[in-house]
Design a protein around this nucleic acid. Sequence first.
DNA 1: CTCTTGATGCAACTGCGTTGCATTTGCGGC
DNA 2: GCCGCAAATGCAACGCAGTTGCATCAAGAG
Lengths: 142, 142
Amino acid sequence: MKFSRKAEAALRRRGGRMTRARRALLELIEKSPRPLAPRQLHRELRRAGVRVDLVSVYRNVAALLELGLLHRVLGSTAVRPCAEGERPARCHHAVVCTACGSAREFHSLALERALGEVRRATRYRISGHLLELRGLCESCRS
Amino acid sequence: MKFSRKAEAALRRRGGRMTRARRALLELIEKSPRPLAPRQLHRELRRAGVRVDLVSVYRNVAALLELGLLHRVLGSTAVRPCAEGERPARCHHAVVCTACGSAREFHSLALERALGEVRRATRYRISGHLLELRGLCESCRS
DNA sequence: CTCTTGATGCAACTGCGTTGCATTTGCGGC
DNA sequence: GCCGCAAATGCAACGCAGTTGCATCAAGAG
Ligand SMILES: [Mn+2]
Ligand SMILES: [Mn+2]
Ligand SMILES: [Zn+2]
Ligand SMILES: [Zn+2]
């Protein structure tokens, strides 16, 4: 399902409304090939002629993060749409290109199992984790 | 080997010198049961009667991070001493207590293997990763 | 069309971390 | 111990990211 549709539905469910700026933001995030930070999103919107304040971008991004529709790239404020369906699963791991910044979620049963093993081995009561791989995407390798 | 010793050696190797403030900082990091951010380190030092400026703490922390003697907790600026020996290995994974903030590095062969598998499966040329587990430590469970 | 209230714009503000520069101080050499 | 150089520090100014309060605008339900 398209990100903007999913987001609009989720926002309306919350009693939210669709404004010109918000719609443009959702479409920008959807079309962007790589995670963008609020400031970058703002710049792109302005460049496209959308009159919107940076504060609004921050507020919208915060809302989408709360709804689980966006993820933040570790160590930055750039956000990317969650690749999951309606009901996001537990673990959302991503590979991020260190050159162009593009990101893709991935899943690995072996990794899930290994994490389960660690979970049992450590003396902490594990409640979650952060995991992100770094590397070069196909196009950036050439 | 004790963190402060290891750090002093590494700093001297770089042509660095030991000052009162720096020594106090190293010992504070060594003694602290949990990762502290530069501002917290500074506050603790002042509280202990060490006259040092916040800028110096920042600069020292930066140096220690560059030397690989400290790691940052993901999503924060708090730092913790690397648990490795003289030659830090590739992967330094940690579990962080969500209640008290205490952290411990751990190692898992199964995890290394699973990551290797993912590395091969993805179409990116993986160069590294970030991984951190979250949970409750033993004492915070009670 | 009207009304309610969510969304926005604007400006002030906070807090973090950095930078430039003058001053201090560690420490190697004597 | 004294000297001199470079490392380290302190201080103040600065830049930048993100937040907050509040007045205003406008989505969309009735
Ligand atoms: Mn996801
Ligand atoms: Mn380590
Ligand atoms: Zn790339
Ligand atoms: Zn704890």
